[in-house]
Nucleic acid binder design. Structure first.
Length: 918
RNA sequence: GCCCGGGUGGUGAAAUUGGUAUACACAGCGGACUUAAAAUCCGCCGCCUACCUGCAUAAGGAGCGUACGGGUUCAAGUCCCGUCCCGGGCACCA
């Protein structure tokens, strides 16, 4: 075959047009992503290529389950999905070639509010809207070429799925893990529903953004706090595959606090002459060592003692109510003064017996602990500010201990000076310190350090029956009732005689009627007689069905286990024990608290019911970064912004090359709004479908992987997409130009290669080594660059010059590039005949670098003199330390830069450098 | 305020974890091919300079460079201390 020369003049085509060498067997000369992707996808479909079977004997290394957080079927995929699923896809393709039995499933988080909102807008039933969206998004996922086992697909709005939400809920009711109570809840007036604490962000609904109100409503709760300690302990010790960042978020959320709960006795009686709270005002403190410094106690405005104060002194009412104002919202809090009202009610200090006045304070929260705190102004910053304002006495009870602390100043570090004095007019951080301090002015506690003092206090209090060690958590029980239509019906029945009665297991699922179209007037189930009317399972009398539905976080708490046992006759079956725990979970960081905590809790609850045997569902967790894009807008009236999609803007740059604005096609000037998350509001999203149509799925995948590390945020770039496309075209051209020689060549004989070809082969295997390293640590951006390095090296070998090396190169390049760009590589693999000798690329053996190829006869070592790079020396790769030292000492640079001094010391870093110290 | 991350060319980023800083790309510049453009291919591309060699705004060399200031080390983007920014989490939590 005649070597291809791009500069050759073609007798028929003329200059500059591509000369077409004969193809083998009948390959297209140009990369056409549409035909390539269609061919590959239909082949995968026809062979059921991604069907996962438990204990599949083809894969000896055991299972590998990698799963992406299930998407909400909002209408279309967005680029975040593309990134998420490509990471997932690369993992399973890579693992499969290594011999693992992989599973990558997909499903739909199909219940939820957006469907109801869309329904109201478009007058379609949420069910119809949802199923339509699922269809579209499934087609898009397939167009991306994801290695999904679609036989396990599920939608959470399918009765066959949510039946098990209901079943498990009933089990939890039976054993007390779920319970019904009436509580003040967060009510979202826009979405007309109850929100969990986690769903209230800065006092607003996480989805609607509406200011949340407090309402009293009966509902169901999951007792997640029962697992608080286990969840925390596992967070700290059992999740090595989670990022520290993620673990910290969960740890903070659980919010464990160890301290002492004790009572101030009192004989304050209510209107009926009954002692309030049985004459004990409980507080919680983490600083029991400062108990002798108590000069007041403070209660929340809702506390029974505050209520009693209002009863006795009605003029306090408006002042106390005023303390509730200002809310708990964001910035106001920082500005809010510590305010309070004295009540003229007194409690008794449990250790000193002194009378202590009760204040109502705006910084005490009824929802935390007992809604009351002891006031130790000397050693708590808030109490300090409060006491200073209201001229309450401040009593110092701890000091920096000169025996254990060493104070210094910047000029004389470490030199002990006198311990700092306590100054009641100004707060210093050490007042609140637990470390390096000991008690003073505290009677029996004097001289004790924090831990000793706390133990002593507990001993004294428990002797009087007034206190004990106690651990509290920030985490609250999970309220799962939602006053919504589009969710899993809570399977209970209300009977006038029997009260709340669970639906018998045999009657599950309680099927949600799918034909309703919400109109904003509340839950349509409340008007659905056919749904409402039922008979009481206990007494058989007419009864009314519950119309609340479950929080959709229930759906997502365990779906990944249903993937593992699709169509099971039970909630999960033995197949779940095969696939779970999941080896790798992938999703956005925005679910770091809610979803991940609920899923972990659900797993533990299922474990304790004997449904599974493991403790934690997700061994490894990857949180892919957000996709960002530039934001452009034209100023509207009243400071509003008319956002312009970046695709319509030609950006302009300042003298430093940074974008500072842009122009539209008609010349209109637009403002630059910086970089932000791709979204509908800013109109800066990129539609994956457009990308797939224009460049193909492989280019889209390659781009999102190459743009940065999987966990880093990534900024969109049109030109970088073109670059990704260009690379794939070069891969195609490389193979097409060498098709025949690659198909016919044998194995590489390394000894027969010229020095130049040996160098190329060294580059190839070095890049492969790097690629394998980066695959293992899931750093896919450099996996892509390793493939580019391989191609750069291989292209230096002209067609026909070294068929065996070209064949080896193509086989390595195609295999390492395959997880990123499966379509083009599969097509080339088949076209070049690899499929005939090595089988399908899907199951091909993962390439390992040839150790011999990585050995060079001579190696270059960096030569440093006194730590500065001055040149390099070339030595035989087999050279020992002494030889290298001698060669380095003899180098010209040593004479030149060493100023004639003899080497004092020579440090040799094998294979890298040699440093001569003179 | 506390707790986690992070700060590297014009841009996205890399540096196998203490060993040649800027790999691989994008953009830009120059060239080849073309009537021309696109595409493709080749080359250049951190900063500074009357600091040195050179006619040179060519090419070398020296110097400086990973937010800033110190330190440890033969050797620091990487480790330590301090400071400043950016992102995230938590927060009148007792």
């Amino acid at each position: 075959m005649k070597p291809y020369n791009s500069k050759a003049y073609h007798p028929i085509l003329g200059r500059g047009l591509r000369y077409e060498p004969p193809r083998f067997p009948d390959m297209d000369s140009q990369y056409n992503h549409k035909t390539v992707e269609a061919t590959a996808q239909s082949q995968w479909r026809d062979t059921n290529a991604y069907l996962a079977i438990e204990n599949d004997p083809r894969f000896p290394k055991g299972k590998y389950y990698a799963c992406s957080m299930l998407p909400y079927p909002s209408g279309k995929l967005h680029m975040g999905h593309v990134r998420n699923y490509t990471i997932n896809d690369m993992l399973v393709r890579y693992k499969r070639m290594q011999g693992y039995n992989v599973l990558m499933p997909m499903g739909w988080d199909a219940f939820g509010l957006p469907a109801e909102n869309a329904a109201m807008k478009a007058k379609v039933a949420p069910a119809a809207w949802t199923y339509k969206n699922i269809e579209v998004m499934k087609a898009q996922s397939q167009a991306l070429g994801l290695a999904i086992d679609w036989s396990r697909e599920l939608a959470t709005c399918d009765p066959a799925y949510y039946k098990w939400n209901q079943w498990f809920f009933l089990k939890c009711l039976e054993n007390g893990l779920a319970y019904r109570k009436t509580q003040i809840v967060n009510w979202d007036p826009v979405d007309q529903t109850v929100l969990a604490n986690e769903q209230v962000v800065d006092g607003r609904g996480w989805r609607s953004g509406a200011l949340v109100e407090k309402r009293e409503i009966p509902g169901y709760y999951m007792n997640i706090t029962k697992y608080a300690e286990e969840l925390l302990d596992a967070t700290l010790h059992m999740l090595p595959g989670w990022s520290e960042r993620l673990r910290t978020i969960q740890e903070n959320w659980i919010g464990k606090s160890e301290g002492v709960r004790f009572a101030f006795p009192h004989d304050i009686k209510d209107a009926n002459g009954k002692p309030i709270q049985d004459g004990k005002m409980y507080v919680f403190t983490t600083r029991a060592d400062t108990i002798m410094g108590v000069t007041f106690v403070a209660v929340a405005p809702e506390h029974p003692l505050a209520v009693e104060a209002i009863r006795r002194y009605p003029e306090l009412g408006s002042k106390i109510h005023a303390l509730k104002l200002g809310g708990t919202t964001e910035a106001e809090l920082a500005l809010k003064e510590k305010e309070g009202v004295p009540t003229n009610l007194f409690v008794t200090h449990p250790l000193t017996g002194k009378d202590i006045e009760v204040w109502v304070a705006n910084y005490v929260l009824i929802s935390y602990g007992d809604g009351a705190v002891m006031g130790v102004p000397a050693h708590d910053e808030r109490d300090f500010a409060f006491a200073n304002w209201y001229r309450i006495p401040i009593k110092q009870v701890i000091e920096q201990d000169p025996k254990i602390a060493r104070w210094g100043s910047p000029s004389s570090p470490g030199v002990s000076v006198a311990p700092p004095d306590f100054d009641p007019s100004k707060w210093h951080d050490w007042y609140g310190s637990k470390a390096l301090t000991s008690c003073v002015n505290s009677g029996v506690l004097d001289g004790l350090h924090y831990e000793q003092a706390v133990s002593k206090v507990v001993e004294l209090l428990s002797a009087k029956g007034l206190g004990e060690k106690k651990t509290t958590y920030r985490l609250r029980d999970w309220g799962i009732s939602r006053q919504r239509y589009w969710g899993t019906p809570i399977p209970v029945i209300h009977c006038d005689d029997c009260g709340v009665v669970p639906v018998p297991e045999k009657d599950l699922p309680v099927v949600l009627p799918e034909h309703h179209i919400p109109d904003g007037s509340g839950n349509p189930l409340n008007k659905d007689e056919a749904f409402l009317k039922c008979t009481c399972p206990k007494c058989g009398k007419p009864a009314r069905r519950e119309t609340d539905t479950m929080d959709t976080f229930v759906d997502s708490a365990w779906y990944y286990m249903r993937y593992a046992s699709p169509n099971a006759e039970t909630m999960v079956d033995a197949r779940n024990d095969y696939w779970m725990p999941m080896d790798q979970y992938i999703g956005g960081i925005e679910h770091a608290v809610l979803h991940l905590l609920y899923a972990r809790f659900w797993t533990k609850a299922m474990r304790d019911m004997g449904l599974l045997k493991f403790d934690e569902p997700f061994k490894r967790m990857t949180n892919h970064g957000m996709l960002l894009n530039h934001i452009f807008y034209t100023p509207g009236s009243h400071g509003s912004k008319n956002f312009i999609p970046p695709t319509e803007v030609k950006p302009t740059h300042d003298e430093k090359g940074h974008i500072n604005g842009g122009t539209l096609a008609d010349g209109t000037r637009v403002e630059y709004g910086g970089i932000g998350k791709m979204g509908k509001t800013e109109r800066n999203g990129v539609d994956p479908q457009d990308l797939i149509d224009k460049y193909g799925a492989d280019t889209a995948r390659l781009y999102v992987m190459f743009v940065g590390g999987p966990e880093d945020p990534a900024v969109w770039s049109d030109t970088a997409v073109e670059g990704a496309m260009r690379f794939l075209r070069r891969v195609w051209t490389y193979c097409a130009d060498r098709a025949a020689e690659i198909a016919n060549a044998g194995a590489v004989d390394a000894n027969a290669l010229s020095a130049e070809l040996k160098a190329t082969r060294f580059e190839l295997h070095s890049a492969l080594k790097q690629s394998n390293f980066d695959y293992e640590r899931q750093q896919y951006n450099t996996v892509v660059s390793a493939s580019m390095k391989m191609l750069n090296a291989l292209e230096t070998v002209k067609p026909g010059a070294a068929p065996t090396l070209s064949r080896e190169g193509a086989s390595i390049l195609l295999r390492t590039l395959y997880p990123v760009a499966p379509h083009i590589t599969c097509k080339l693999w088949d076209d070049l005949g690899f499929e005939k000798t090595e089988g399908s690329l899907l199951n091909a053996k993962w390439p390992e670098p040839d150790a011999a190829a990585l050995v060079q006869d001579e190696i270059k070592l960096v030569l440093q003199i006194n730590g500065k790079t001055r040149g390099e020396i070339v030595v035989a790769s087999s050279a020992d330390k002494a030889t290298i030292e001698a060669a380095a000492a003899a180098a010209d640079e040593v004479a030149k830069f060493g100023e004639g001094r003899a080497p004092k010391k020579i440090i040799v870093v094998p294979g890298r450098l040699v440093n001569v110290v003179v």
